[in-house]
């Protein structure tokens, strides 16, 4: 009987250790979106100050596209911006912008200065649509399929490497299906 008691600690550790080992294979900061495989929430955003057309859910349907949440105040967006510019120049994929919680005029000034990779930009100054999308921080990018369903979410800036390794193959696959 006593023997069994002495084996107990090693059994507990075995279970905990197994969890640790399995936990190593997972990335805790990768929070999946609740929206995956659901249609993009309905919205119809006005244009940002200085531009003509806004952005609505209808605009995004029909083609596999990226919806990118950005703000002129966001440091990581500066890092991401050149990558988006390149994608837009190469015509890799349509990119729609959601200008999040920006001062009136600041978004346009930013796009004038660094270039505009977006097909259309919507102004979400109050941050309502961002809440519907479950945005936790900028930049954040949603991959939307032809039917307007969210298929993937990227938290943080898209790097060239991330595009080549993850997004490009995914978009290719969505186009084929």
């Amino acid at each position: 009987m006593r023997r069994i008691v002495f084996i107990f600690p090693i059994l507990v550790f075995a279970v905990v250790g197994a969890f640790f080992a399995y936990g190593l294979t997972r990335d805790p900061s990768n929070i999946p979106s609740q929206l995956i495989d659901r249609p993009l929430p309905e919205f119809d955003l006005p244009a940002i100050q200085g531009m003509e057309k806004g952005l609505s859910t209808e605009d995004i349907k029909g083609e596999v596209a990226l919806v990118n949440v950005f703000g002129s105040w966001c440091v990581s967006c500066h890092v991401e911006h050149p990558v988006l510019m390149e994608l837009s120049k190469a015509g890799a994929v349509p990119i729609y912008g959601l200008n999040w919680k920006d001062e009136p005029g600041a978004g346009k000034a930013w796009l004038d200065r660094y270039g505009n990779p977006y097909d259309l930009v919507g102004d979400d100054q109050a941050g309502r649509v961002a809440i519907d999308l479950g945005v936790t921080g900028a930049p954040e990018t949603f991959v939307v399929d032809r039917e307007g369903r969210v298929r993937f979410k990227v938290t943080g800036p898209i790097t060239e490497q991330y595009w080549t390794n993850t997004l490009a193959p995914l978009i290719e696959e969505l186009r084929r299906s």
Binding site: R3, F6, P9, I10, F13, G17, F20, L24
Partner: peptide
């Protein structure tokens, strides 16, 4: 760095697992 995680886990298993195995065998 995943490689570090694996290495520390190996240390964990060797040290804690080893000690507790000795405990299970000899605590009596």
């Amino acid at each position: 760095d995943p490689a570090r995680g694996v290495f520390i886990l190996a240390i964990l298993v060797a040290a804690i697992g080893g000690a507790l195995t000795v405990f299970a065998m000899r605590a009596n």
